[in-house]
Amino acid sequence: MTGLSHVSPPRVLAISSGGGHWVQLLRLAPAFEGAEVHYACTDADAAGDVSAAPFYIYPDANKSQPIKLALTAIRIACIIVWVRPDVIVSTGAAGGGLAVMMGRWLGIRSLFVDSIANAKELSVSAKLALRAADAVFTQWPKVAAQTPAVFRGSVL
């Protein structure tokens, strides 16, 4: 032993649904620099966007599909237990909300960034995340003014 304490980079689970949520997650990539990033997405083909990083797939679901949502939750729980992240970052939607809830139960810090699409009110997932995440960002100042979510800039 050298006596110097070795600080390992924070391990981040960056998780979102496919499509616009994923495009927004990728736009956050410079913020992950220096961290060990693991990605999870509903779209298997999204792996091609982050070929250098570990990548996990989970099934898509929304609140009107309770059985699929339960399967999604089980799969996300497995990913979190496997990755053991220090931090969870999500840009939505339902799977991201579930991930921050599980993060809370497991003592993992989490950040939920609501989609820029939600220009008037928070998404259902962001409202769920407000009860579990350490921070919820909205991308609109006027939504921040009406909700506990905070505005810290946008993906644009």
């Binding site: 956050l28 990539a29 410079p30 913020a31 970052v89 950040l111 810290r152 800039g153 946008s154």
Partner: peptide, 24 residues
């Protein structure tokens, strides 16, 4: 074209959060 990345303020807020800073 727009930049391929989020605004600098959002990137630094996310980066600060990951490094243990407070988001509020």
């Amino acid at each position: 074209c727009i930049s391929p990345y989020a605004s600098p303020d959002l990137l630094s807020a996310v980066s600060d959060f990951i490094r243990g800073g407070r988001a509020e």
